[in-house]
Amino acid sequence: MEIVVLLKQVPATESFVGIADDKVSVKTDDVKWVINPYDEFAVEEALRIKEAHGGSVTIVSVGRDKTAEAVRTALAMGADKGILIKDTISEKYDGLGIARILAAVLKDIPYDLIIAGQRAVDDDNFLVGTAVAEFLNIPNISLVIKEEIIDGRIRCHRTIEGGTVVIESSLPALITTQRGLNEPRYASLPGIMKAKRKPLDVKTLADIGLDVGQFETSGMHIVSLKFPPERKSGRIIEGESAQVKVSELLRALREEAKVI
């Protein structure tokens, strides 16, 4: 089973992300960079499938020099090799642009299953994985919390509002991860040592036959970024007893806030 994991490096969710002076990009100088949490589930699931069915796990990512750290971390978790498409302005591409780059990489490597995060926790697009499947003309199942591979097919439990749906697909296919799929392992010290010797191919867009300029002009662009309106801290309801406090809260919700 040849498994490919699509991976993005993102600011850790505990990071404060600022808005740059140009008002259309974010300031990420002081953030801690990590593997997108949903892609971590993807790496873990790929490793478990490999452990059960054999084969190999390849990590594919688009990013800058520093993105290599995230790919190395996935290799330290147990993946076999990495491919990094290095591009200094990839942050400017929209989701479809990134998906086209990933699809171009995948055209040249074997795969039975592709696993991607349902979304990256930076741009929250929910787009790239599904778009890669479309560009490769293979089926996709998103938001998967459980999968089983039986007789060359994959059966997935996909989350929907208020429940789950079980869907089966032929292979090759692409699935996206949902929280609950697994508990990602930590990279062990021997794993980290081994990862240093694992192959990591760093390529440019030109190396995979793409024109550098073709992604710069896309159909959408950010015109401005702003912080959501700051919530002012309200008031702490004081009172002699819990009952008094609750009565005052209910009065406030009814008469001031008008939500009940």
Partner: peptide, 20 residues
């Protein structure tokens, strides 16, 4: 207008394709 970074930032996006 769509939230990014889990709602920490709001982005205004201009869309040019037909359709959108």
């Amino acid at each position: 207008t769509r939230p990014i970074y889990g709602g920490k930032i709001l982005a205004d996006i201009a869309m040019d394709t037909k359709p959108v």
